[in-house]
């Protein structure tokens, strides 16, 4: 006697916006009639904040609560079926949840990070008598925040990288000579569009080993009293391998990964920002990095 429980959302991509209705069906498949004490659905949106180990010590002193208490964005619970029986075979029970927030809360966009996680889940529970185990099924759905009203102005950035432009080096004289030009088409990017630009190796004394784009998230947790700011890598995309042809433009192209990026977010308790590093690795293992803060938005 095995019954299975499943949640199917109407939208294949599981993406919803604030104010829309989350609709779908609960599917129960069983060979025989299933006796139960009620089936309920719980929809919940949470922001989980976590502190990195290096800042834990400092914080625990005066701010103990941030780590433990997640911020609830939305919650809702309904009973789908009253206690009773579900006939054998496949039973589909439709449901709908309006995605409305209470008060002045905003539904932030789904985001999976390291120290900040914004996640929306839908859980279905089937309570059963003592003899049988309760059944439960969880399914995540995505929330995209509403498109930005303001028209986005492209903000192209040109850059030149030479030994002289570098900071944070010990022996400038040991560096080989090189000149790398390039530009990003925009630093305020639409999240659904790739990051684009071009890069030209004008000259380089030492052969180039690799050129990479490193996408970095900068997560800030805290409030006025103090905060922890951590930058971690999301992904690293190689755009050139080996000693590329000089003075031939190489495209910069990177797709923003879903879930791991969201529109740049700034709230009272936490911040999520993104940056991109253009990393040039020379054959003698010199690592040259040029950093560009990005502003992501949705249109």
């Amino acid at each position: 006697m095995s019954a299975s429980l499943d949640i199917r959302l109407k939208r294949a991509n599981k993406v919803y916006h604030e104010g829309e209705v989350l609709a779908g069906v609960v599917v129960i498949v069983s060979k025989e009639t299933v006796q139960h004490q009620g089936i309920s659905l719980t929809m919940e949106g949470l922001v989980n904040l976590q502190l990195s180990s290096k800042s834990v010590g400092v914080f625990e002193a005066f701010y103990n609560s941030v780590k433990v208490r997640p911020i609830q964005l939305i919650t809702s619970n309904i009973e789908v079926v009253k206690p009773g029986k579900v006939p054998g075979g496949k039973t589909e029970i439709p449901f709908e949840f309006p995605l409305h927030t209470k008060g002045n809360k905003v539904l932030y966009e789904t985001y999976h990070g390291v120290f900040v996680n914004i996640q929306y889940t839908l859980r279905c529970d089937m309570k059963r008598s003592l003899l049988a185990k309760d059944l439960s099924k969880t399914c995540e759905f995505m929330v995209h925040c509403l498109p930005q009203k303001a028209k986005l102005q492209p903000t192209p950035v040109d850059f030149n990288i030479t030994p002289e432009t570098l900071q944070n080096i010990r022996e400038r004289s040991l560096l080989p000579k090189f000149l790398i030009r390039g530009h990003l088409d925009a630093t305020n990017c639409v999240i659904t569009q790739p990051l684009t630009g071009e890069l030209v190796v004008q000259s380089s004394d030492v052969a180039i080993k690799s050129i990479e784009l490193q996408l970095v998230r900068v997560e800030t947790c805290g409030c006025a009293e103090g905060y922890a700011r951590d930058a971690t890598e999301i992904q690293n995309i190689q755009i050139a391998e080996g000693d590329v042809c000089h003075s031939l433009p190489i495209p910069i192209y990177m797709v923003f990964p879903r879930l791991f990026t969201c529109p740049t977010l700034e709230t009272t308790n936490f911040k999520v920002e993104f940056e991109v590093n253009v990393v040039i690795v020379l054959h003698d293992d010199h690592l040259i990095t040029e950093n560009f803060p990005l502003k992501l938005c949705r249109v």
Binding site: R11, A12, N13, I237, Q238, I239, E241, V255, R258
Partner: peptide
């Protein structure tokens, strides 16, 4: 093309876009 197929297809492309090295990507 229905939504499920599109979503699957999109998934493939997102997966490929995150391949680290240039040549395999």
């Amino acid at each position: 093309v229905n939504d499920t197929a599109k979503e699957t297809c999109l998934n493939w492309f997102f997966k490929i876009a995150s391949i680290r090295e240039l040549i395999p990507r």
